[in-house]
Amino acid sequence: MLEVRGLFKSFGQSEILRGIDLTVEKGDVIAIIGPSGSGKTTLLRCMNYLERADAGQMVFDDVTYDMKLVTKKEILDIRRRTGFVFQNYNLFANKTALKNITEGLTTARKIPAEEARETGLRMLEKVGLAGYEDYYPASLSGGQQQRVAIARAIAPDPEVIYFDEPTSALDPELTKEVLEVMRALAAEGSTMVVVTHEMAFAKNVANKVIFMEGGRIVEAADAETFFAAPAQDRSREFLHGLDY
């Protein structure tokens, strides 16, 4: 469904992504793990064109895009078929929880307000926040904000949702409620690419694991295989050092 080939990205002199190839099948839950600074965030950002790649190809629903030369219109179209959940939520500070969800439906996708509202309320319920539609982000806890952010990302029914360490800014208690929501999404068959430090999530929820280091994919494997017996020494060392 989604494929990235030969993705390169540098910031100034430093090469951050050095030839990434990855494939996402429909229904996949892919956990991307790796040490800090290995380029995980940059990879997700390039895939949603928040950063422009220096080279690379993306095949999305059988259409091939040059990740460097992709046009604004194509980017808009790709983004409207994907969702993105940020580490620090990035809810629209001037919008209520409900408006955070409906904004992308009404403004970007021209869905009628009433229909968008219904979808929004349904999404809030889905992430366990029924009744919170009129709350502003500032009056929600981190866990609640992240769940609204997830509701916002899934409301347009995207083909794939990217998560960049969705729980790493949260306390363990709040982490649990967010992971619960993500687990439910995965169970429904949503296609998800999740950068995470939560090894339990990677092990129990993801079906594939990608281990990155130094801007390269060191190992990509089935989650089960990966955690039972990593093929690469570096993966083994990394897992060992984590002590999850």
Binding site: F86, N88, K95, E103
Partner: peptide, 30 residues
């Protein structure tokens, strides 16, 4: 206004102008 607000607008499928008008400018004007 934090850069994440504009990026969140992009990821919600909005254009630059849409995000400026509906998200960034209202916060800046405040």
């Amino acid at each position: 206004v934090p850069a994440g607000q504009l990026e969140a607008g992009y990821c919600a499928g909005m254009t630059y102008m849409q995000t400026m008008r509906r998200i960034v400018l209202p916060q800046a004007l405040r």
